[in-house]
Design a protein around this nucleic acid. Sequence first.
DNA 1: GTGCTAAGTCAACGATGGTTTACATCACAT
DNA 2: ATGTGATGTAAACCATCGTTGACTTAGCAC
Lengths: 194, 194
Amino acid sequence: MTAGEQRRRDAASTRRLLLRAARRRFAQHGYAATTVRDIADEAGVNVALISRYFASKEGLFEACLRGVGDELGDTVRSDVGLDQVPRTIARQLSGQHAGEHPDQLLLLLRSSGDERAEQIRLGILRSFAERMAAAAGGPAGDDAHLLRAQIALSAALGLALLRSNTTMEPLASAREDDLLGPIEDLFHALLPGG
Amino acid sequence: MTAGEQRRRDAASTRRLLLRAARRRFAQHGYAATTVRDIADEAGVNVALISRYFASKEGLFEACLRGVGDELGDTVRSDVGLDQVPRTIARQLSGQHAGEHPDQLLLLLRSSGDERAEQIRLGILRSFAERMAAAAGGPAGDDAHLLRAQIALSAALGLALLRSNTTMEPLASAREDDLLGPIEDLFHALLPGG
DNA sequence: GTGCTAAGTCAACGATGGTTTACATCACAT
DNA sequence: ATGTGATGTAAACCATCGTTGACTTAGCAC
């Protein structure tokens, strides 16, 4: 088969389709408000395949979180300087660069109530905040700086949520350029190295 | 009946009980993840009374939002100075002063999908941000300052969500005193009058 | 006390949720 | 070409959801 074509039956491809649809719906509407049939329809796939490939709705959600964790690990590791973080976040929020990895931040705010999923989510958030604190030059193990990094992270996530969630202008239709300045100010104020 | 006693049948009282339980559960777990039976049980009240007093689960949610809107109107109106806002928010987040009006901020992040409820929620958020922008001395109608006020609001709400949602330390068990400094920095950086 | 209405209870309804089961069909090795 | 396991489909299952209607009981006027 040539490059663009797809086999009509391809487990890996279906898995990807389900993951993409699930992440989008979980991120946008939350775990409880999202139906497995919603996800399957959006993916153009039969509902029963969710159980087959991910065991359960919870399993699919965990897989989404793991996906975000992996992508986020790559993203932030390459951000050696703290200066880059605000721009990265502004870009992520604006949805410009999000074609590749959309809804990353949003998903980190979504709770399913499941123990294992919460562990994964918490792990991602913690390591994210720790890397920010480290990049800011705060001494490792310094609670005050870590707290500030976590607050900065909370701010970014809150921003993501309100932008996706409300039509509050001018916030809702602000572009990357509009967001960058305030976000930089926010990070500079919270983190020493910023 | 003496002071502390209650009648066993008191419509106004049961309405209050339902509102209190509903606000807590909606705020903590979101709209979709909250069951009318959960609310009724926590309120110690029969499920059917939700339909009687609030017509529907949606109606109860709207009533919760309206309640928060009223309380928040009073709270922020008396905050003549912007300096007071960070302290008020820190206190609200810490749950100290929240005995009276708990879960106010959190509920503003919860979406039910219902049109009318979303209108109410958006209205509260907008007027909140506008008052903050005004208190910061930004000229009325200035989009840049309003945007920054909305970003500050998003930050506060994100903080509320992560604190109620995760066990990420040291954020999760930070006290009002620990939060106040960073929040002040955040507001000062975002708003001109701060 | 007696009756009447407001307040609360109980059980069921239809709808929808996640999941499973039995079956059909495709892809590939032989 | 053909059999076999992987992949996808269709339908149903059972629990739970929000909601409703018929019934009981408390509170209060008279």
